[in-house]
């Protein structure tokens, strides 16, 4: 490979190899978009009811009896959130497979045949992501709780942002390592992870990830620009705003989010493949 950015080129083309599977993943993303739109309308309703209560009774939210709360809506919100979490586990499982295929340099996209397997992989992926973000999260919360002064809080937030970034760079290689050996322990084998990155070159590694993120952001900004046009057009054509917004959200989930996530994970897998050479 002449240049490492060729991985990015390859990753951008890769989702077009099998449009059906791209759309299959897109359906999951569209489902999440639809669910989250629905959840936000429901929570808007809840807050409207609560605000009405506060205004009419001159009380505060904590004085509300639980029977006065719109329990139906709240249960609906909780149920839908759990559902969308489960769907996102499937998406993570699929991303796991994409990384796997990238490491093996297979030209086709992974299938959806083994649903249970996808789910298990998704849980693994999720655990690793959470584990890597625990430390910066703790710092962030510590800052929120103990940092009374604004300047102290700023320092805490700054430290946590730096930690988040470091954790992210390690996370990419950690997931690759986990997928390559198909064992969740390998995601926390820091020696092997740092060895892999050192083998690849730290500067090159950070550079390619930043480059990929830049390409990702450019695509997303351009697409959201186009989608905002469509939203405006739709909201003129359709009197119901929520339907217009949901249509755009579903379009974005179906084509854009799925494409972007496949692209990103493919590039990550390719980085691992180059690093163990």
């Amino acid at each position: 490979m002449a240049s490492i950015t060729d991985c990015v080129v390859e990753g951008l083309k890769y989702p077009f190899n099998d449009i059906k599977k791209l759309l299959g993943l897109g359906v999951l993303f569209a489902l999440i978009s639809a669910l989250s739109t629905f959840i936000s309308t429901q929570s808007f309703e809840v807050s409207t009811i609560t605000m009405n209560f506060v205004e009419n009774a001159n009380g505060t939210v904590s004085q509300m009896a639980s029977s006065q709360l719109p329990t139906g809506n709240i249960y609906l919100i909780i149920g839908l959130s759990v559902l969308s979490f489960i769907v996102s586990l499937f998406i993570l499982g699929y991303q796991y497979d994409i990384v796997k295929f990238a490491i093996d340099k297979k030209p086709e996209l992974p299938g959806f045949n083994d649903v249970i397997d996808l789910f298990v992989k998704g849980i693994k992926y999720f655990i690793v992501v959470v584990a890597y973000n625990v430390i910066p999260m703790i710092v962030l919360f510590a800052g929120m709780v103990f940092g009374g002064d604004v300047s102290v809080m700023m320092v805490f937030i700054l430290i946590s942002v730096v930690l988040f970034i470091i954790a992210y760079f390690l996370l990419v290689m950690a997931i690759n390592n986990m997928v390559a050996h198909d064992s969740i322990k390998k995601a926390f084998d820091f020696k092997e992870i740092t060895d892999n990155i050192a083998n690849f070159g730290w500067g090159k590694y950070v550079g390619i990830i930043i480059f990929t993120v830049i390409v990702y952001v450019i695509i997303m900004v351009a697409v959201s620009f186009v989608l905002s046009f469509i939203t405006v057009a739709l909201s003129i054509a359709i009197p119901n705003q929520i339907i217009a917004i949901s249509i755009v959200a579903i379009i974005e989930g179906l084509f854009i989010d799925s494409y972007a996530s496949i692209f990103f994970n493919r590039v990550c897998g390719s980085i691992y493949r180059e690093s163990i050479k």
């Binding site: 950015t5 951008l12 830049i214 450019i218």
Partner: peptide, 13 residues
């Protein structure tokens, strides 16, 4: 075009 796009991003960076 994909190749062209990525090259363009490199140039701009």
């Amino acid at each position: 075009l994909v190749d062209m796009f990525v090259d363009g991003v490199k140039v701009v960076i």
